[in-house]
C-alpha cells in the first residue's frame, strides 16, 4: 500500500525536480545515509560523533524532500513520526544515564571498556552517540518539514 503510493508519487513528472536530479538523488541519498551512520557508529574511534552524523541523516532526508516533493517526504517519514523519533533519542539518553545510577553515579560508564581501537569498546559512549544521532537527525528534519509545509497545508485545505 505504502510502497505503491511512493512509486506512484516518484514517477509522477509533475512533482519535484527534473528527471536528471531525481536519478542522481536516488543514488546519492543511499550513500549519504550510509556515511551518516558510519560517522555515528565510529564516533568513538574517528572524528565525528552523534551530532555531525545526525545532521548528515537530516541532510539526506532534506535532499529527498527537495529532489522529489514534500508529499513523498510526508509519506516516507511524516512530521508526527519525526517528532516521535526525536523523543525516542532523548529518552534513550536519559534512560542510559539512569541505568548508570544503579552502578555508581548518573551517566556512569557501566559497560565493559573492551579492547581499545576496536568497534565494540568504550562502554556506553557508542550508545550515547547513537541516541544523540537519532535525536538530532529527526529534530532537524522535523524543523525543515515544519517550516516547509505547515503554512501551505492551511491554504490547500481552504481551496
Amino acid at each position: 500500500m505504502k510502497k505503491e503510493k511512493i512509486k506512484e508519487l516518484i514517477e509522477d513528472p509533475n512533482l519535484g525536480m527534473t528527471l536528471i536530479v531525481k536519478t542522481v538523488a536516488r543514488i546519492t541519498i543511499a550513500l549519504i545515509l550510509l556515511y551518516g551512520f558510519y560517522i555515528i557508529i565510529y564516533g568513538h574511534l574517528t572524528p565525528g560523533g552523534g551530532f555531525a552524523g545526525g545532521v548528515i541523516l537530516a541532510i539526506a532526508y532534506t535532499l529527498m524532500m527537495l529532489a522529489f516533493s514534500r508529499r513523498i517526504a510526508l509519506v516516507k517519514l511524516s512530521d508526527f513520526w519525526a517528532s516521535i523519533w526525536d523523543n525516542i533519542g532523548m529518552l534513550a539518553f536519559i534512560v542510559i544515564g539512569f541505568v548508570g545510577l544503579g552502578f555508581g553515579y548518573f551517566l556512569f560508564n557501566f559497560l565493559s571498556k573492551g579492547k581499545p581501537f576496536s568497534l565494540i569498546s568504550a562502554g556506553i559512549i557508542p550508545l550515547l552517540n547513537l541516541s544523540i544521532g537519532i535525536k538530532i537527525g529527526a529534530a532537524l528534519y522535523a524543523i525543515f518539514i515544519g517550516l516547509s509545509i505547515y503554512g501551505r497545508l492551511v491554504l490547500e485545505e481552504e481551496e
Binding site: 564516533g43 568513538h44 574511534l45 574517528t46 572524528p47 560523533g49 544515564g97 548518573f106 551517566l107 560508564n109 571498556k113 573492551g114 581499545p116 581501537f117 569498546s121 568504550a122 562502554g123 556506553i124 559512549i125 550515547l128 552517540n129 544523540i132
Partner: peptide
C-alpha cells in the same frame, strides 16, 4: 573510558552532563 577519540571521551564520559 576506552574511547580512542579523546573528544568523544570528554563530551560523553567526563562531561556527559554538559552534553
Amino acid at each position: 573510558t576506552g574511547a580512542a577519540n579523546i573528544v568523544a571521551a570528554v563530551i560523553l564520559d567526563y562531561r556527559a552532563y554538559d552534553t
